[in-house]
Design a binder for these strands. Sequence first.
DNA 1: GGTAGGATTACG
DNA 2: GTAATCCTACCT
Length: 203
Amino acid sequence: MTERTIIEPEWLSESATIVAPNLIGCVVARKFPDGDVIRGMIVETEAYMAGDPACHAYQKKTHRNAPMFEAAGYAYVYLIYGIHHCFNIVTDRKDMASAVLVRALSLLNLPQATQLKLSEKKIARLAAGPGKLCRILGIDRSCSGHLLAVEHDLWLEHRPGSLSQHLQQGKRPIVQTTRIGISQGQELPWRWYLKDSPSVSVR
DNA sequence: GGTAGGATTACG
DNA sequence: GTAATCCTACCT
């Protein structure tokens, strides 16, 4: 019923501005040490790439941003404001700095510890924000530079067929707009989100 | 070796 | 509106 096909690096080997909207509706899967697998549908993304003043790799390659220069399919995770982690999916080709920031997920199932009585609304907000989704999926800097793959307990899956149909029929439009929380490159329309999703970080 | 500031969040 | 909190990048 719910077919799950793994996203391979090849599928991510295009410009971040192409991949970012393509990732809307796809799934981030995280396997915990206890064997639990938590899945979240991507509902909001932003693209960052070389030549973009908001991109962490705008100046030069450093220890922190090195994963952005990897081939497609790697994870780039950094700490922001000393508190929160942000999860990026590296795109394009090797030595071309580019990545898609995953800004919000709609959780498809919940960690055991969270499975107590929460309202639908609260569940929808559990991964509504780049820092929040990292916290609930246990993603931190130790994931940065790792290939996104089942054997690394963090991977991506394609859109369920039913959602693809909806998207193609325009039933759930993907909205394109400007990015959030940056001081430079604010005019670039490189943020995408699934319209009407209660899990988008800001609407 | 010192330090300004950040692709955020929660709370008032 | 603003505090929390710490790495990173950049300067000396």
